[in-house]
Amino acid sequence: MSSIGIEKRTASSGIRGLTLDPVRIRAALGRWFMFSDYGAAAQRHMAIVWSCVLGYVLVDVIWLQGSRLEFAPSNWIVLLQGVACTALAGLFIAVASARLAGDDRRSAVLLRRVLLLTELLWRAVLPIGGLLVAGALLTYLITAANLPAKDDVLADIDHLLGFDWPGFLQATNASPLVVKLLVRAYNALGLISELVLISMVLRRRGDRIAEFLAVLSLSTVAVCIGMALVPAAGAFAHFHPAPHLFANFSATREMWPFYRSFVALRDGTLSVFDLAALDGIVSFPSFHTMLGVMTAYAARDTRWLLIPVLAVNGTMILATMPVGGHHLCDVLAGAALTIGAILLVRRQNTATPIQAQQALPAGA
């Protein structure tokens, strides 16, 4: 969709979009939930995304009723703040766009484009927030169920594949330079993901954002299923490596901090899900690996970004074993499941140009 078409659509939404006309309200909601623009394939992708979010919420509500885990009351304040900020952002963008509509001065055109980019970024962050909260709660519920761990099975498969986890830990720990490189790459995952998302926003690739969100949604579903079928504490908990095997790693960061929350959830000493103290507790499959694969895929048509993303994410995936304490099986499963999610989503990219054009707003 061209930037001119998008600007026309935003300008026409203006103050009229603030009335209580049901048609305009539906149009505004459709735009903010990314159903009304960027083509038919993007609409199907977002249907996957919001279906996953709603599915998570439904499972969470039902599971919480019989779980020893509680939803912290303070979480409602956080959620209400998020809803309020989103509503205020939408209101501000609508009012500002209306005031700038029809103004051909260079400054006004620039401000309209900034508003468009801000809106697109906000629209992308909204479902990510939903997936984070609802998905993370489900991972806590699964862990609190205290299902029998299967690290011995994963370690046996690694052995059959010829991989020696303690030996790999010792080998990487031997070089302080390698340790620093792996730790920094492991910690860079959030930054890399944000850069890839921002690059898609700056290029106004709402279609690619919808595709990325669909892959992310399906991958998180795969994570929860994997956690339920193959509960695991991680390679570090299985092998109990001697301190000297990871001395250089532990000198640069706290090793495997998620393990405390993992154990506390399983033995019941942690019984409250608090967004202010959220820990990533996924062992199988490796979610770091999954994000590494999907962000590289999302950056595939931007060479200046793809090359550094591949370099950092490739190093990060290696780091998931010594730094993240994952089995090799965790990494392989994470990569395979994400590739599967990508292939499923790509099947949605079958809309013809005519279909995509029909899916665009009338003002485009």
Results as ranks from 00 to 15, higher is better:
L332M: 14
A362N: 09
I25R: 01
G129L: 07
Q65W: 08
I77P: 01
T172E: 03
L195T: 03
G162M: 00
I142H: 00
A171V: 06
T269P: 14
A299R: 01
A101Q: 04
G66T: 03
H159K: 09
A351Q: 02
L120E: 09
Q357I: 03
F249P: 07
D37A: 05
Y259G: 02
L154S: 00
I339V: 15
N146K: 06
I317W: 05
I25Y: 03
V345T: 14
V331N: 11
V59E: 02
R68M: 11
H238W: 09
A174W: 04
V331H: 03
A155T: 01
A351M: 01
N187R: 13
R9C: 02
V23C: 04
T295I: 13
I339A: 11
A319F: 00
A298C: 01
S74H: 07
V312P: 02
T86D: 02
L69S: 06
I281R: 01
V53W: 00
V312G: 03
H240I: 06
L344D: 11
F163I: 12
V153K: 15
G135E: 05
W256H: 08
F71H: 07
G129H: 07
K8P: 08
A101I: 04
K180W: 15
L64N: 06
N248E: 12
V178Y: 00
R303Q: 03
V309D: 13
L88V: 12
S107K: 12
L328V: 03
R106Y: 11
R266K: 06
I6W: 11
T315Y: 00
G130L: 07
L229G: 00
A124P: 08
P73Y: 05
E119L: 02
L147P: 05
G234H: 00
A108P: 15
R68D: 14
N349F: 14
G190C: 08
I198L: 11
F163Q: 05
H326N: 04
S193H: 05
T118D: 06
L218T: 05
A40P: 04
V223W: 10
C52E: 02
M290T: 10
L202S: 05
A359L: 04
L132I: 11
N146R: 07
G334C: 08
I25L: 12
H244I: 10
G268W: 10
D151K: 10
V201N: 07
L126S: 06
I62W: 00
V179T: 14
L195V: 06
G280K: 05
I15E: 11
G334K: 02
L131I: 12
K8Y: 14
D267S: 09
L126F: 15
L100P: 05
M255K: 09
A296H: 07
D151P: 08
M316C: 11
S271A: 14
I157E: 14
L344V: 12
L291T: 07
V323D: 09
V230F: 06
D103I: 02
A72R: 03
P361Y: 01
R300G: 02
F273C: 10
L64Y: 00
Y38G: 02
P231T: 04
M316T: 09
R203Q: 13
S3M: 14
M200P: 07
R9E: 10
L197Y: 10
V215S: 01
D60L: 05
Y186V: 04
Q358W: 03
V196K: 15
G82M: 09
W256F: 09
Y140A: 00
W256D: 11
M200T: 11
Y186Q: 01
W63M: 06
F273I: 10
H45S: 13
R205H: 02
S217A: 12
A364T: 13
T289V: 01
